[in-house]
Amino acid sequence: MPSLSDSALATAAARALETGTGLAEPDVLAVLRLPDEELPAALELAHQVRMRWCGPEVEVEGIVSVKTGGCPEDCHFCSQSGLFTSPVRAVWLDIPALVEAARQTAATGATEFCIVAAVRGPDARLMAQLRDGVAAIRAEVDINIAASLGMLTRAQVDELVALGIHRYNHNLETARSFFPQVVTTHTWDERFDTLRMVRDSGMEVCCGGILGLGESLEQRAEFAVQLAALAPDEVPLNFLNPRPGTPLGEAALVDPRDALRAIAAFRLALPRTILRYAGGREITLGDLGTRDGLLGGINAVIVGNYLTTLGRSPADDLALLDDLKMPVKALSATL
């Protein structure tokens, strides 16, 4: 008689690998619950799904914070909330530094540069900074420009489209049922409203979240299928890096095996999506785990530093991709 895990992976193979359709919630949960012995097989299947439906290329992205800290929201994992005793101070990046950040990103071979602001949503000052920043980057650096500026109005969506922002990031962060435990100053549905407008505008949708906020495995599965229902072009997967002074500052790291199970499960829920390693991978998975994830469903990375923390060296990531014979997606392939 096949074991439960055999049948979980057989179901996953029949659906995700053969048809490119994401798993249903109970099947995602079954993958998240696989015993450690089955983890290599789950990662292998997720890798096959990624290779079949996305191909071997890896999309490389750099990010920078144009406005750091002082955010009025209370996302419990975030060092940039102005409501906690985090040591992160509010600061704006000027245009020359923004262009320098884009140049540093392009120098790694990255095709994506995402401009991020710690805000509930953009005000006139931020939109003006973005307009000037985008124009200055375009004049000097050849790279796709994405943005992550919080919740948007319809007029702001239209303005971003007019600016040529090709992808918008807005993370749902966690399962809808768990969100109120993590954020009280706005709702999951408010976030979803922005995502719906972004999708309808024709911009690419980038939407992911953070694992390790205290959610259950059931809620992790719920989150994966909620993301799948949105059908985002990209899903960035963060793992909690507990930040001093935040409500989750003393929380435990995600166990690396659970992190890898989640990578496989999210790939099987989202067979055709760009699944990106984002914050917390270094501290959660280390070098070996980073490699395992790239062989287990991940097909995109943020290289270099994050918004308020540092990442491992881009050279190490690029050498790893080279070693794995995974070509970096070229700019021409994205236009």
Binding site: T68, P87, V88, V91, A97, Q104, I283, V303, N305
Partner: peptide, 23 residues
């Protein structure tokens, strides 16, 4: 994996900017 946050001489919180290749 983090930039400094406090001035080592006076303990003031510093204004810190993290860029893709430095801080």
């Amino acid at each position: 994996l983090e930039p400094p946050r406090f001035c080592p001489y006076c303990r003031r919180r510093m204004k810190v900017q993290v860029l893709p290749a430095g801080w």
